[in-house]
Amino acid sequence: MNLFRLLGDLSHLASIFILIHKIQTTRSCRGISFQTQALYVTVFVARYIDLFFRWISLYNFFMKIFFIASSVYILYLMKYRYRPTHDPSIDTFKVEYLVGPAVVLSLIFNYKFEFTEILWTFSIYLEAVAILPQLFMLQRTGEAETITTHYLAALGAYRALYIPNWIYRYFTEDVVDPIAIVAGLVQTGLYLDFFYVYFTKVLQGQKFELPA
């Protein structure tokens, strides 16, 4: 465990708390893509299936439980509690275009052709692109509530912080995980446009608005 990794994980935790806070205080899930949230549940369940057969640490155990539980809770909030505030007509990204390629890629590029290993690889590829329905929705509406942009910034920061973490581990532990690194770079890259607007507008006190 190094500082980058820890800050990354904390940023990930923060993003989830921000999202739940946004939904509960505004009593609305407006501006949040249900599809992206559903993809995250898929990602966590597929990856953390190893809770059943691999013990790493107490930290690791509780984080995994938290990510699965909180993502399911968010789906519940969106699907039942605040259902009327979700507008499916602007959340129209075709998730099969993400799930399909993630399945195919994980069957081809993996470390070992074993069921749980392929599930892990699938979850890595799927996570890399899971934010796309959310970003697509943002692009479509052209604006976002400030709190929603904080959620996305924390989520992007989590991924960005994993990169120095890998560099650090390369030098100190002599390990490289090409699958995680390539997928992680792609995932972080997807946030670049968003970060640009976030830093130049939201952090300057302006509303998040995309040029027409």
Binding site: R5, D9, H12, D50, R54, I56, S57, N60, M63, K64, F67, Y111, W120, Y162, N165, R169, Y170, D174, V175, V176, D177, P178, I179, A180
Partner: peptide
């Protein structure tokens, strides 16, 4: 470096 998956990450 060992090309090993770092499965201790989240």
């Amino acid at each position: 470096p060992r090309r090993s998956p770092v499965k201790d990450e989240l």
